[in-house]
Nucleic acid binder design. Sequence first.
DNA 1: TAAATTAGCTTACAGTTGTAAGCTCAAAGT
DNA 2: ACTTTGAGCTTACAACTGTAAGCTAATTTA
Lengths: 202, 202
Amino acid sequence: MSRAEQKERTRQAIINAAFSQLSAEKGFASLSLREVTREAGIAPTSFYRHFADMDELGLTLVDEAGLMLRQLMRQARLRIEKNGSVINTSVQTFMEFVADNSNVFRLLLRERSGTSAAFRAAVAREIQHFSAELAHYLRKQTECSAEQAQLQAEAMVTLVFHTGADALDAPKEQYAQLTRRTVLQLRWLAHGAASYGRKSQA
Amino acid sequence: MSRAEQKERTRQAIINAAFSQLSAEKGFASLSLREVTREAGIAPTSFYRHFADMDELGLTLVDEAGLMLRQLMRQARLRIEKNGSVINTSVQTFMEFVADNSNVFRLLLRERSGTSAAFRAAVAREIQHFSAELAHYLRKQTECSAEQAQLQAEAMVTLVFHTGADALDAPKEQYAQLTRRTVLQLRWLAHGAASYGRKSQA
DNA sequence: TAAATTAGCTTACAGTTGTAAGCTCAAAGT
DNA sequence: ACTTTGAGCTTACAACTGTAAGCTAATTTA
């Protein structure tokens, strides 16, 4: 095995260890370098061969999470093309993502309002991509100004994220209801933006 | 000074010390008992005369924050009666609260998705009160079912909270724009809920 | 007035943390 | 074949954490 190959392998081991230690009870802030390296199977000080400090690891995790979000969008896009209903399919897909990758979603959710400005900015950027894609769809479906579409998309993402957060603490039996409620909220928003915008082109 | 009086005084000193150590860079989780007692002017172990552990202190802080939220609502109510515009006045009032009590708002914002289930529940309860009051107003203004009003209120609170979070990282010059955008989102929501609900009484 | 209570103190300990210094030894470069 | 590089190791240290044990002194109660 080549040297670079091995290095990349332990790097991934560190990342995986970090992700696996995140949970409902443990956020990134309370992760310790020693615990992570212990799980990754290396000595504490070897950590520095890969990351300058825990913050650098954290930003890497956020990037990976953002990547997953983008994959999620791709998946949603496919399902929308088959299904047609943008709102319903999107929310459904997102809820599945939250259920299947709760640790990843929790990371984004927490660091969005966390104690590191760099983390907050990183998460905000990832969510921004997400909203921009949604805004693109909205413009295709309902014709309106780019600014309006963006504002509407941001509101929708905010509502969906919030529902995702609720889902983390709710039993699975409630997912359907949570989804239903959110879909209704989004429909109101879409409906209101369309008709209200027609009256006054703000 | 009576004994109970003095005790209450240092209890408040602890609470104040804790609040003052919260900041953009430091969340409740990274508060240390020793630091808090140092600022409160007592010995570390004296802490236990007032709280069983840091969690108990934290829940107290959340309660105090909820109290401030309720005061905020009362203030908003007064201003609405004079001003008339529910949405605009509410958002305005809320943004002032965030600006003037950013540490308090940050506490709620963070612990809402924090690592302690008890904290999350406590924050959720406070926000629930907030939404319920708003729902009450919505029912008076636009007639609709209680369930619809509640759902609409929750969406509005979610959007306003999110804007508050954005405001924490934004320069004050942007507050006006943030407010304007949010008001627009809320109007869409209100408008959509009214007209969409008329078509299909969900 | 004598006894009981208790807020706050001092001292102490065991555990954890991040990270500096320097070694080993296998892969990569020349 | 010889040298250089560098991933991972061991050891070590200073800083900090929460909290247990027990004392002091002042208020409260009997």
